[in-house]
Design a protein around this nucleic acid. Structure first.
Lengths: 191, 191
DNA sequence: TACGCCCGAATGAACGTTCAATTGGGGTAA
DNA sequence: TTACCCCAATTGAACGTTCATTCGGGCGTA
């Protein structure tokens, strides 16, 4: 796996920014090309089609989210602390990468998404599942399906990031802490 | 406010179904027309443009979600019970109206969404805010911003409905109860 | 007749994609 | 070193299609 060509990266970046502003429709290939500083034909040197470009971009972007999970998911740190770190890690990641967040949300609700593997094969979710399995195994969490825990927690993170990232609501540090706590109190093992 | 013309309703319905299957792009007006059993021109008798159609459809669909909240949000029922009813009401509503759910999710992540009023003016969210304010006032909930509570709870409902509605995961009755409980335990006032 | 509703072929702009032409770096033989 | 070639990378004008929208007319009712 060689490093991604500069041009390819530029195309990814432009697509991400343009899709945030204009949606999938509303971002013609010609615009992507101009924005990336390449000719229209060049895109087709790297990608078979617009659909292919978007699907590859999704993978590329998901890798970054996966990297965040892998960074925070550390087996030698106590689970509870790990949970709060993971929450904050993903939250700030999404909040500070709104173009990526918007792209994700558009993608998973679009017809492209049907090309994605089932949730069990999805690397990102698999990682989250493992994380919550650990919490259950160590007796820190309620005995609820890890899949339920994972999607519940993740959706909460996403919605908080959207709220602040898109400027619909301002959340103070204290608000974030309350939100984290409220999540944690729900999923933690009750004595 | 007179009843909506039959044709108009048919156009709404077709758009909803087609957008679920094909996304905003991928549902040309000609297809909407054919599906609704009307001519292309007829759509333009009722709607100024495709954008207008989609925005009006969003309002129309949101009305239905609002109706669910109003139905379940009953001041004479104890708050806790009301919460569980509201949860279940919205959950089943979204789960059984997947076309509407998908349309919502696509809309709020699309550029159309920028035409929507700020969250304070949004009737649906205002209702939710009121609901959670009541919970706080009555001492049933933690003293957390109602906006945070509302979006947190709503995002959890949506993600559960998506999971089951789109067949990515099967949730048993017991799973749902656990999910409800886990939410409730997070937001309820701790003694 | 007049009016409102509806039709659907026609229009023209926008878009994804193609391709013939150009460039330039690197390998090779003399 | 020079002359030559090769081929991947790149270009952008051109193509054919698709799509939102228009509009002239038909049909039924008052």
């Amino acid at each position: 796996m060689e490093p991604i060509a500069e041009k390819k990266k530029a195309i990814f970046k432009s697509t991400l920014e343009l899709v945030r502003e204009n949606g999938f429709h509303g971002t013609p290939m010609s615009l992507v090309a101009k924005h990336a500083g390449v000719a229209a034909g060049t895109i087709y040197h790297y990608f078979e089609s617009k659909e292919q470009l978007i699907c590859e971009l999704f993978d590329y972007a998901q890798q970054q989210a996966i990297a965040v999970v892998e960074r925070e998911n550390c087996a030698v740190i106590p689970f509870e602390e790990c949970f709060f770190r993971l929450w904050m890690g993903l939250y700030t990641f999404y909040r500070d990468n709104t173009d990526l967040l918007k792209f994700f949300e558009q993608f998973v609700n679009s017809p492209y998404d049907t090309t994605r593997p089932p949730i069990e094969k999805d690397k990102f979710y698999s990682l989250l599942f493992q994380f919550f399995e650990r919490g259950i195994r160590e007796g820190e969490l309620r005995e609820v399906s890890p899949k339920i825990l994972a999607t519940h927690v993740h959706s909460s993170i996403i919605s908080a990031a959207k709220l602040t990232g898109f400027g619909r609501l301002k959340l103070e540090q204290s608000d974030l802490e309350q939100l984290q706590l409220l999540l944690w109190d729900g999923i933690k093992r009750t004595a």
